[in-house]
Amino acid sequence: MFTRGSRYQAVEESEYVQADGRTVRYKRIRFLPSPDGRGGYVVASGDRPDTAAWNIAQDAESYWRLCDANGTARPAELTARVGTRIIIPDPTGGAGS
Rank of each mutant, 00 (worst) to 15 (best):
W64I: 04
P49N: 07
Y16S: 01
V43T: 08
D50H: 11
S6M: 00
W64Y: 15
G37F: 07
T84I: 07
G21H: 02
G93P: 06
G46D: 09
R7G: 12
L78C: 10
R65E: 09
D47Q: 06
T92D: 15
I87W: 02
V17A: 05
Y41V: 08
P49S: 13
G46R: 11
E77H: 14
G39H: 05
L32R: 14
E77N: 13
D20G: 07
Y41Q: 04
R7Y: 01
L32C: 08
I86R: 09
P75R: 14
A95K: 14
Y41D: 14
A10D: 04
E61G: 14
Q18D: 14
R4C: 04
N55L: 12
E77K: 10
F2A: 06
G5W: 00
M1N: 01
L78P: 09
A44D: 06
R4A: 06
Q18E: 11
N70V: 03
R7T: 00
A10W: 02
G5E: 00
N70D: 09
P33I: 01
V42R: 10
I88P: 03
A19E: 08
A44V: 06
R48S: 15
D47K: 01
R65P: 03
A19L: 11
E13D: 00
G5I: 00
A10N: 14
R30C: 04
D50I: 13
E13C: 01
E61P: 01
A10C: 05
G96F: 12
R48T: 15
W64A: 10
P89T: 05
D90Y: 14
Y63Q: 04
F31A: 13
A76H: 07
F31R: 12
Q9D: 01
N55D: 15
R38Q: 13
Q9M: 02
A19K: 12
S62H: 10
P89N: 03
V43P: 03
G5M: 00
V11Q: 00
T51C: 07
N70L: 04
I29W: 13
Y26W: 07
D68S: 01
A44Y: 07
G5S: 00
I86Q: 10
T23M: 12
R25M: 03
P49V: 12
V11H: 02
R22Y: 08
Y41A: 09
F2W: 10
G39S: 10
G96A: 06
A57H: 11
T23Y: 00
V17W: 00
T79C: 11
I86C: 05
G83W: 06
G40P: 07
P49M: 04
T92A: 15
S14G: 07
T72Q: 01
T3H: 02
R22F: 11
E77V: 12
V42S: 07
V24D: 03
Q18N: 11
G39C: 08
L66D: 02
I56S: 04
L66K: 09
K27E: 00
R7L: 05
A69M: 08
R38K: 10
G71Q: 09
S97C: 13
A80Y: 13
D59E: 14
G94W: 13
R28F: 10
E13M: 15
F2H: 06
R65W: 09
E12N: 07
R22S: 13
T79A: 08
T84Y: 01
P75I: 03
